[in-house]
Write a protein that binds this DNA or RNA. Structure first.
Lengths: 201, 201
DNA sequence: GACGCTATTGTGGAATACCGCAAACACAAA
DNA sequence: TTTGTGTTTGCGGTATTCCACAATAGCGTC
């Protein structure tokens, strides 16, 4: 897992260097990319932090890059920067889920403050995803039959009813039920329901 | 409860009339307001639909009106229209929760299509809020003691444990438990947990 | 074939939940 | 005072859960 940092994509080397200097001064790690293509080639799903994306670039534009990132289900917050943005462009980007859209020129603090917020958002999302991951891995450890029994438990049915429905003995249902609680690391059906409802809701 | 309609706020009578004609032709009801002040004076929390809000107006601007609506916790989706918008303005509005931000001139279909989506969103939100309202009214019908017992049930505790914790007899806990299920209209603790987790999650 | 995992079932008992009926007490409103 | 609501408790009984111990059978891997 790479650490949280700002991934800066801009085809102007002077700007890249200036941003890098600013960021590092403020203690924000960053990586530099001269083109959308270079970034997309290198990008890995476990990268954390945020993306600072220039819109007008040689080759693939920042907006195209953004679309590609969405396709690849990259969840990193994206901060667009542009010198010649127009309103529909900004509206479209934000409605697609961009974190921010900043016009040049911007003050040093303006960008860095938003980058820090974006990184904080990603960190929070990562934490939530980890929680979901824990639950999901437990779910994955269930056998098909156990999952089947669990579904019925979550409908609040008695073991007896479940046994009838699956045409097996009550004792078998109890065995599965016990296994399910064990693997999901809960002590009651209520905890199980809360764990899974949180996962979905 | 008033029915879903587009609330148009614009100080240009010609535009109001033109929009009204377009909307009615497409079967979208609307109300017309010559100023932000007029709308804010009349607005009631049970109004449904969406708001079409011009930014540049005499008196209170559309942006100020939006801020006021947020303060008053109005949840109607807001579509801004403006002839002289700039990017920071659009970005700020959307980040505050505006539904859309459209620059003049726009095509007939462009606005009406977004209005219809906004109204659909409000309708959906309304439905979800009604569900929450149902659960909340049931919760409100619980006595203090019943709610107390319910909390402990949701922690998956046995009646015996609850009885000890509240220093009352098991039989009393059973009585409360039964009342809680009755009032909340559920048949098991699992259902109760799901109902309340959905409310919060 | 031995081994491990999964699914299945049984016995028997202790603990718990659930329910109807009944009732005592406090407290506030009519 | 009467009435109503909320809180509390008991009795007796049935249904259900939960658990330890034990066992059979299928299935795929090594």
């Amino acid at each position: 897992m790479s650490q949280a940092c700002a991934h800066i994509i801009d085809d102007d080397e002077a700007i890249r260097d200036a941003l890098q200097w600013q960021f590092r001064t403020r203690g924000v790690e960053c990586t530099l990319w001269p083109s959308a293509e270079a970034f997309l080639d290198a990008w890995q799903t476990d990268w954390r932090g945020c993306i600072v994306l220039d819109i007008r670039m040689e080759g693939m534009s920042g907006l195209e890059c953004f679309d590609t990132l969405i396709e690849r289900q990259c969840s990193l917050p994206v901060i667009f920067i542009t010198g010649h943005g127009d309103v529909p462009m900004a509206v479209s980007a934000l409605k697609k889920g961009a974190f921010d859209f900043i016009e040049k020129p911007f003050s040093d603090n303006e960008l860095i403050e938003r980058v820090e917020r974006a990184i904080a958002l990603d960190t929070e999302r990562q934490r939530a995803a980890a929680d979901r991951g824990t639950v999901e891995s437990r779910l994955a450890s269930l056998t098909a039959r156990e999952r089947e029994v669990m579904e019925l438990i979550l409908e609040g049915k008695y073991n007896k009813v479940i046994a009838d429905q699956l045409s097996i003995s009550m004792r078998t249902v109890e065995a599965h039920r016990s296994k399910v609680f064990d693997k999901m690391q809960v002590r009651s059906a209520v905890e199980l329901a809360q764990m899974l409802t949180t996962l979905k809701g």
